[in-house]
Amino acid sequence: MTGFELTDQDRRILALLQRDGRISNQDLAERTAMSTSACWRRVKALEEAGIIARYVALVDARRAGMAFHAIVLVKLSRHSRDHVVNFIAEVQRREEVLDCFATTGESDYHLRVLCPDLDAYNDFLDNFLFGLPGVANVHTNMVLKQIKHETAVSFG
């Protein structure tokens, strides 16, 4: 993204698209005081620069039957290149893992994991996570209640 300078109009476009990814180009142009062609070109430039990474539908996990939500802290026994590369590749393949962060502190990685229920989570642990080479310790923090969840990046 180097060299791409966000303008105030870009920020307005991004804010509107984050609220409603299905907004028409015409409505987006009207709300940003741009012509439809200029707005379309700006959105395309934001996509090509990787600032707009993708368009998605936000799903209510509980209503979709995914009731078990946890933050999982993982510590590796060694930080050999092979263990780290393997861990990252395997975690990226798992649909249960919504987010994976390499972190500082006592744990090396924080995972946000979503499963239908506790049995499915135990299966994820037993048949996947515990079997990964280099995994020394796994600590599960079960999410009791979601207080705040945002996907939009704020521009002030």
Rank of each mutant, 00 (worst) to 15 (best):
A102D: 10
H83Y: 07
G156T: 05
Y109Q: 11
R63A: 04
T140M: 00
E150R: 00
A49G: 10
E90G: 09
L76A: 03
D27C: 03
L58E: 04
G131K: 01
R62L: 05
C115N: 09
I71C: 06
D123F: 03
L76G: 00
E96I: 11
A70M: 05
K75M: 06
E5W: 13
P133W: 04
A38K: 12
A53R: 08
A15E: 14
Q146R: 05
F68A: 01
R31I: 04
E47N: 13
T2M: 05
S154H: 06
S35G: 14
Q9P: 10
Y109K: 06
A38D: 13
V113K: 03
Q26T: 15
Q92M: 01
A120I: 15
G134E: 06
S80D: 10
L14H: 05
A33R: 04
R41A: 14
A33W: 13
L73G: 07
Y55K: 03
T103M: 11
Q26A: 12
Q92W: 11
Q9V: 14
A64D: 00
I147S: 11
G21T: 08
V91D: 03
V135K: 01
G156N: 07
H83M: 05
I147G: 13
S77Q: 10
P133E: 09
P116A: 07
L76V: 03
G105C: 08
E5N: 11
T36Q: 12
N122T: 09
E5T: 10
N141A: 07
T103W: 06
R93Y: 13
G156R: 05
C100M: 09
A33G: 14
T7D: 01
N137T: 02
L98Y: 15
G134H: 01
L76H: 05
L16G: 05
R112S: 12
